[in-house]
């Protein structure tokens, strides 16, 4: 008998009827989702920059990239940036567009200064941004560079992880990650240190759309 059958038979021999409880729904009702998102993410050492509209958000990104003195930037080819020719918009930087640019994405990301991404959703309660893999959406772009910059419209804000999962549709892609701040650790004498393996800075440009 295979290990699979052996294990499943053992479990089945003690199977009993059970009533699975109805889903627990969110009790949250934040008066201002953007406000709560900003507060929580900032408390978790992330950075939030508010912008009045998409144009203003692009200006903020321009300012941040220059302030960071970035040279190489990898960008995920996804909403709201997918309609944009980043090379034309920001000619001062060397760009790698995931899914479009030629060359090895892993080695570009390993040497990039900033990874720029959109987001699928944002959770107000926990200050989290949901980033997925998919066509034009690199996992390493938001992971290997020392700075992860995400552009997020307020329309994708939801209360919390419960409201987010309740609104789920269809099968997810290979990877989906909820990012709630910059990489951190407290493994040495419980002292907080920022930026151990993932990005050292997590900056969200949150704009009204």
């Amino acid at each position: 008998m295979s290990a699979r059958d052996q294990i499943l038979n053992q479990l089945r021999s003690n199977e009993r009827p059970a009533e699975h409880p109805e889903p627990w729904r969110s009790r949250r009702n934040f008066p201002d989702l953007a406000e709560r998102f900003t507060q929580t993410l900032t408390a978790g050492k992330g950075e939030v920059i508010r912008a009045a509209n998409f144009e203003a958000a692009l200006n903020e990104i321009d300012t941040i990239l220059h302030e960071l003195q970035a040279k190489r930037v990898v960008v995920n080819d996804t909403a709201p940036l997918d309609g944009l020719d980043v090379g034309k918009q920001w000619p001062d930087f060397e760009w790698f567009v995931a899914g479009k640019s030629e060359g090895d994405i892993k080695s570009f990301c390993a040497g990039a200064d900033v990874g720029l991404s959109g987001a699928d959703a944002a959770l107000a309660e926990t200050g989290s941004v949901v980033v997925s893999s998919g066509p034009g959406k690199s996992r390493l772009a938001t992971l290997l560079p020392p700075v992860h910059l995400a552009i997020v419209p307020t329309s994708i804000l939801t209360s919390d992880i419960l409201t987010w999962t309740a609104a789920r549709q269809g099968q997810p892609g290979a990877n989906r990650v909820l990012v709630s701040g910059p990489s951190k650790t407290a493994d040495i004498e419980q002292v907080l240190a920022i930026g151990v393996h993932g990005p050292k800075r997590f900056i969200v440009v949150l704009y009204d759309d």
């Binding site: 978790g44 989290s128 893999s133 959406k137 290979a174 990650v177 909820l178 709630s180 993932g198």
Partner: peptide, 22 residues
């Protein structure tokens, strides 16, 4: 004591053919 950890990583199968990495 965190509301969520910094990363909640969800993996559903290997990289799809159209994914740039994974």
């Amino acid at each position: 004591g965190q509301a969520l950890t910094i990363y909640t990583n969800i993996i559903t199968g290997p990289a799809r053919p159209t994914d740039p990495d994974g």
